[in-house]
Design a binder for these strands. Structure first.
Length: 374
RNA sequence: GGGUAGGUGGCGGAGCAGUCAAACGCAUCAGACUGUAAAUCUGACGCCUUCGGGCUACGGGGGUGCAAAUCCCUCCCUACCCA
């Protein structure tokens, strides 16, 4: 069960302030949702995550199903000792990342066009059918099936406050024909998800349609017509900000404004204001934590590549205006050393800082909305 | 003093006559990363280049041979064993 209240609508944009109430506490929106794929925000424990100002996490159905198994994990709040709000993604992203994403070795925001889809209409490593998807486990190669029913059943076992409908995250710049067909499938699956869900968890339906305005409108209207508790906006969201903006323009107006909207998997710093102004309440993104593990720290002036030797002589904090634990206690030279020495602590400190920095960044955007600045 | 095994690019370490500027790993440098197959991946890594190629290289020196990191001689060095 969730309750969502819109506290303020911006006069200047679609941005809004909201309060999401779950059985595990409140979330002030707009909010970043840090990614805890395997019931863990990599390198950080639950107490540390709280200290990064994170309000809500998203974990992953597909990965937890494979390891340790949803039965063994049980209630994920308890399992990972996270008593605050939590979502689970449905496994729909893995239809992309282990499918076309793997075939072509690129991400969902790639600018490359998938012309090969026109020929085969099917990724090499998985099989997408109208009923669901046959996967090969990336862990042991074992073949297994996941469709809307399976995803919901697993998500019910995991017990997150918010769960997502099983969808196909479509590959970037696929042909309109492919997207159209995929959209129909995702819509069918959406209905099944609603039908089979027995728990009182909030279920979000996912809008697809790639970069095609009429398909986005169609999808948004359709998903909105069903009894979902909120919305996910997924798929290829455009490699350019103008495209993302356009996609939101063709999606948000067709969704019930009283329900929360979650943009799936987007949230670089320079995307944030853009997507929030487009009407997004929640968004998850691996960037703060993933980039941290490859040695990148985000700061007011952009980002720092802590692998570079020049930082060995730099005794400034990562960002002098950041009040996080890392910036208060450590200098760039040490963080550079840890990164270059591949010390686990380095990954942890950068992950902590990046999440805190991102969350603070969103906090400021909330203040801007409050003060009628955006 | 005697014996044995060795000396290869920044390091470790393959190769033991031609397809070797020399596998592979590490280090270094550059780049990528947006619902995490992600503490990952890609590329460069002797010197020069009009990007076709050219030059210098496998401890030093000298041979054999069309051709040597690879065979022979010699010197130097290292490790271990015996005195």
């Amino acid at each position: 069960m969730i309750e969502f209240k819109v506290l303020k609508n911006s006069q200047k944009s679609q941005a809004r302030l909201g309060l999401l109430k779950t059985d595990h506490g409140l979330v002030k929106t707009p909010s970043l949702v840090p990614v805890a794929t395997q019931a863990c925000v990599k390198t950080l424990d639950s107490q540390e995550i709280e200290k990064t100002k994170s309000q809500i996490l998203i974990s992953n159905t597909f990965h937890l199903f494979l390891k340790p198994g949803d039965e063994l994990a049980g209630d994920i709040h308890e399992f990972m000792n996270w008593s605050r709000p939590l979502m689970t993604d449905s496994g729909g992203f893995q239809v992309f990342s282990l499918g076309f994403g793997k075939d072509f070795n690129f991400g969902k925001v790639s600018s490359e066009k998938l012309s090969i889809i026109e020929k085969s209409n099917q990724p090499k490593s998985i099989k997408i059918t109208d009923k669901g998807v046959w996967f090969f486990s990336p862990l042991d190669g074992k073949k297994f099936f996941m469709g809307p029913e399976e995803s919901i059943r697993i998500q019910e076992n995991l017990g997150a406050d918010i769960i997502f409908a099983f969808d196909e995250c479509t590959p970037p710049r696929a042909t309109k024909e492919y997207i159209k067909k995929s959209l129909e499938r995702t819509h069918e699956w959406a209905k099944i998800c609603l039908k089979v869900k027995k728990s009182d968890q909030a279920l979000f339906g996912i809008v697809q349609g790639s970069c095609y305005p009429n398909l986005r409108k169609k999808s948004a209207s359709f998903i909105n017509s069903l009894e979902f508790d909120g919305f996910g906006i997924g798929g290829d969201l455009g490699e350019k900000k103008s495209i993302t903006k356009n996609i939101l323009k063709n999606t948000i107006p067709y969704l019930d404004p009283s329900k929360p909207r979650h943009l799936l998997g987007i949230g670089k710093l320079d995307d944030m204001e853009n997507i929030i102004k487009g009407g997004v309440d929640l968004f998850d993104c691996t960037v703060p934590t993933h980039y941290a593990r490859t040695g990148t720290a985000f700061v007011n002036k952009g980002k720092l590549d802590l692998k570079k030797t020049k930082f060995l002589k730099d005794k400034k904090p990562l960002d002098k205006s950041c009040s996080c634990y890392v910036c208060q206690n450590y200098k760039r030279n040490y963080l550079c050393h840890l990164t270059r020495a591949k010390e686990i602590t380095g990954l942890k400190l950068l992950s902590f800082h990046n999440l805190y920095f991102f969350n603070t960044f969103v906090e400021r955007i909330r203040e801007k909305i409050e003060n009628n600045l955006i």
